[in-house]
Design a protein around this nucleic acid. Structure first.
Lengths: 129, 129
DNA sequence: CAGAATATTGACTTTTACGTCAAAGTCAAA
DNA sequence: TTTGACTTTGACGTAAAAGTCAATATTCTG
């Protein structure tokens, strides 16, 4: 695990463009170091990027992703804030479970479609195109 | 299960706007009957809409959703086409499994964050705000 | 230290997935 | 039959999430 990454290091590793990284920064999702004006990403920045891209794959908007990654930051010290965070987590969990259910349903349906295909394939005489 | 639905029936049931339904139709995702110019949706159209919205929840683009819902249509009769469809299904399955993995990871992390919160909460003296 | 490669900021453009009118047709009830 | 609710098409607008391009720095490398 290296100490610091340049912007192109990350674009190569995660297959995103520099524009994307700068856009995420502008949106307050990442905040790399600077050496002069040049961005330098720490392992923690890299981890955050990983979270962001995972959120994207799950179809969350950047605003929703911000909600999620903010939860990973140092938890607050105050009782009320902690309770709010726990509630937020509960809601996100429910949402994610619903999406997993969507996935499972889709997978089951694809299984059924595939079974149908295989049935038909089996009925096509061998040697026929 | 009713025979036919009007456009507003579906907007109410699925909480989408008429604009959305007409847009999906324009994109070739649904193709309701017409009585005169008025759209009439069959149960099959309703099912398709269900699939579309599930795809949206999973973060697929309409183009990707078209790919998926097209698989549910009557499977082709020709051997080559059937094989292609089976391959397509395999790819989608892999993709969906990857997303489920993303979800599971996120859920695990949320669990960890919540555990941290509960730890901290337990350490705050009772009666304190 | 010159030249190539890489970075930065800023402005403008694009794509997707609709939202928002506007104008006109349709149908059902009072 | 007119009023009002609903529908249709069409045109234009918009927000999110970048892509693209230009004009400058900066930085590495031989």
């Amino acid at each position: 695990m290296r100490a610091l990454y340049t912007i192109t290091d990350l674009t190569r590793e995660f297959e995103v463009t520099t524009r994307t990284l700068r856009f995420y920064e502008q949106q307050g999702l990442i905040d790399p170091l600077r050496r002069g004006r040049t961005r330098l990403y720490r392992p923690a920045d890299r981890t955050r990027l990983n979270l962001i891209l995972r959120g994207k794959r799950l179809g969350f908007s950047l605003a929703e992703i911000r909600e999620i990654v903010d939860m990973y930051d140092a938890p607050p010290g105050e009782h009320g804030q902690l309770t709010l965070l726990v509630d937020k987590i509960a809601r996100k969990r429910t949402e994610l479970q619903a999406r997993r259910h969507d996935i499972d349903q889709t997978l089951a349906e694809l299984d059924a479609v595939e079974a149908g295909c295989r049935d038909r394939l089996a009925k096509i005489p061998k040697g026929r195109q």
